[in-house]
């Protein structure tokens, strides 16, 4: 589905990604773990073109994403929920959602997706006409995920969805991801600092440290490796 090969991304002189290779299988959840500054967010931003890779290849279906403009990436079926959720607070809940599906230019599909999202996230339906800055942190995360799903993506990139949320809400979000994978065979790349909850839903996991892949493999294997957990995952 997504094949990242030997990607190098620079921020000035800093090698934020230093030869990273990751394979994401279709219909799975891949967790990308690691400490602050490990390069997790940079990996997502490089995949969707917000930052450009210096070298390496990023293959998605038949496309090489290294040269694809950001606003084209969503048209290939990749949706991104950015760090800090990226809810546009000046717009209403419904406007945020509609924005996610606008590029399709198909009114009935848009209405359909909108109804689906309200069904999946009932609190959003109650607040549809309110500005998004009236939402709580958990609701904003729902909105950000819902908005990404409005584009009916094949691949969902999620950046730290649990950041600043109560554990109960994090659990709900992880359950939503699991459901999307099982029911719609959505492929998910989940960047998380909260390794424990990410590993609870992930099929595969990749651990980054200082821009390099330390280890990758099935999530259960990583979760079972006590040494690795202590060294990089903090639990």
């Amino acid at each position: 589905m997504l094949q990242v090969e030997d990607v190098v991304t620079l921020y000035g002189a800093v090698r934020a990604l230093d030869g990273v290779s990751v394979t994401v299988r279709p219909g799975t959840i891949t967790a990308v773990l690691g400490a602050n500054g490990a390069g997790k967010t940079t990996l997502l931003r490089t995949v969707n073109g917000l930052v450009r890779a210096r070298s390496g290849r990023i293959e998605y279906e038949e496309h090489n994403l290294v040269r694809t403009p950001v606003d084209e990436v969503v048209r290939l079926g990749i949706a991104h929920v950015p760090e800090g959720r990226g809810v546009i607070t000046e717009l209403t809940v419904e406007e945020n959602l509609r924005l996610g599906g606008l590029w399709r230019r198909n009114r009935s599909e848009l209405q359909e997706s909108l109804a689906e999202m309200y069904e999946m996230f009932p609190p959003l339906a109650e607040r549809r006409k309110l500005p998004a800055d009236t939402l709580s942190g958990g609701e904003r995360q729902m909105l950000a995920v819902g908005r990404a799903l409005m584009s009916r993506p094949k691949l969902l990139l999620l950046d730290e969805p649990s950041l600043g949320l109560a554990p109960r809400i994090t659990t709900q979000i992880m359950a939503t991801l699991r459901r999307l994978r099982d029911e719609q065979s959505l492929t998910v790349v989940l960047v998380e600092q909260n390794a424990r909850s990410a590993l609870s839903v992930a099929d595969d996991a990749v651990v980054l440290n200082l821009g390099r892949v330390v280890v990758s493999g099935p999530a259960t294997e990583l979760a079972g490796d006590a040494k690795l957990r202590h060294a990089y995952l903090g639990f």
Binding site: N48, L50, V70, D71, E72, V73, V74, R75, A79, H80, P82, G86, I88, T89, E90, L91, E95, R98, L99, G100, L102, W103, R147, S151
Partner: peptide
């Protein structure tokens, strides 16, 4: 919808780009 895109890209160009808006 055009106006919604214009407002979104004024408020938050990067997020808008991620959502496929040609800012």
């Amino acid at each position: 919808p055009l106006g919604l895109r214009m407002r979104a890209s004024a408020f938050s160009p990067e997020v808008s780009r991620l959502l496929g808006v040609r800012v």
